[in-house]
Amino acid sequence: MLLTSTQLFRLSQGHLNLLAACPRKFQHNYLEKLTTPTDPKQEETQILGSRFHLLMQQREMGLPINSFLEGDKEDKELKTLKTWMTDFSQAAPEILTPDINEQTFRDSEHYRTLQIQDYLITVIYDLLIADQEKADIFDWKTYPQPPDKRYLAKNWQTRLYMYVLAETSEYLPKNISMTYWFVQSKDQPKNIQFKYDTRKHKQTGQELKQILSNLTKWFEEYHQNQPFPQEPAVKKSCEYCQYAVRCYDQINNPLEVRAVILPNIDNIPEVSL
């Protein structure tokens, strides 16, 4: 997919994270649409996470969910979903049972867009709660171990979600926050919150525009049969990348590259037949 004078390229936080990690991988994923076999266990986890998000959305819309959760008692997924919902309602009752007397705006799966250069930046908030002075973004995570807060702070989801809200509303950056809730955390759900400010907003805007300028340049070069930049083969992430061999198959010393990106056969345990 290439940019034209009448076409906007839609970008999400996932696109930006991939561009920051490895532009060549962005090329393989989104321009060439290369696919790799899906890990069944990972796919099962993703489906369960999607079902939880859907239940949270239905609950926010006032649709009944108890009858669904009380379905087949032997269904492991239903048991898991019910546990997550119960634990979260106990950990954050102020989010799920708001004061009806408060004048607040609430919207689940809230969608916003922002055009920058030839790109349409898109965000979807799992839940947005706002009043006349402040706005709070919430995001549900269903993996068990919360990442380091410093890692989350650098993640484009955190930065982009608050940036777009500040750019598309009248809320001052200092009155915007974002909270991640990890509903599967050990013992009870945990949260990590980020506050926004003008300095962070300015920095994010500058870095975002730089990434988009680079992307435009890479698109133009790609149109001239020049691939997107790639990460050095010595990077640890290349060992786990499904495109590693494809990226480096024409390098001067393929044996050296294979030693970096492929496991040593001597270190692979034998499997009894």
Rank of each mutant, 00 (worst) to 15 (best):
K33S: 08
L34Q: 15
A20T: 05
L34M: 10
Q46I: 07
D75E: 15
D72Y: 06
Q46R: 03
E74I: 14
T35W: 11
E77R: 14
P40Q: 01
L48K: 05
L34Y: 04
G62C: 13
E32V: 08
P23I: 02
T45Q: 03
G49Q: 02
G71W: 03
E60Y: 05
N29R: 06
P40G: 11
E60A: 04
N66H: 10
T38I: 08
C22K: 01
H28I: 06
K41C: 09
L31G: 08
D72E: 12
G49W: 04
L48N: 02
S50W: 01
S50G: 04
N66P: 14
K76S: 11
P23Y: 01
S67Q: 14
N66M: 14
C22R: 02
F68Q: 02
G71I: 06
R24E: 01
A20F: 05
P37E: 07
G62R: 08
L19Y: 07
L48S: 04
F26Y: 04
T45E: 12
Q42E: 15
P64G: 06
L54N: 06
G62I: 12
Q58P: 11
S67L: 14
S50H: 05
N29W: 12
L34D: 13
T38V: 10
P23F: 00
D72F: 00
C22Y: 01
T36M: 07
L63T: 00
Q58M: 14
E70N: 11
T36S: 09
L63F: 11
S50P: 05
S50V: 02
Y30S: 03
R24S: 04
E77M: 07
R24Y: 01
Q42T: 10
P37Y: 04
P23M: 02
L48P: 09
T35M: 04
D72M: 14
E44G: 04
K76P: 10
P64V: 07
E44K: 04
P23A: 00
S50M: 06
Q27S: 01
P37R: 00
N29F: 09
G71H: 02
Q58H: 11
K25P: 10
E44V: 05
N66I: 14
F52K: 00
C22V: 00
S50L: 10
I47K: 12
H53C: 00
E77S: 07
E70L: 11
N66Q: 15
Q27A: 04
E44M: 10
D39L: 09
Y30T: 01
E77C: 08
R51E: 09
K25C: 03
E32H: 02
E74W: 15
E77L: 03
T45M: 09
D72W: 11
N66D: 15
C22I: 05
F52Y: 15
E77I: 10
Q57G: 09
P64L: 11
T38L: 10
S67R: 15
Q46H: 02
F68N: 06
A20N: 11
L31R: 08
M56F: 03
N66Y: 15
T35K: 09
Y30W: 05
Q46L: 12
T36A: 14
K25I: 03
M61G: 08
E32D: 09
F26P: 02
M61K: 12
Q46W: 15
Q58A: 09
L48H: 11
K33Q: 10
D39C: 10
H53R: 03
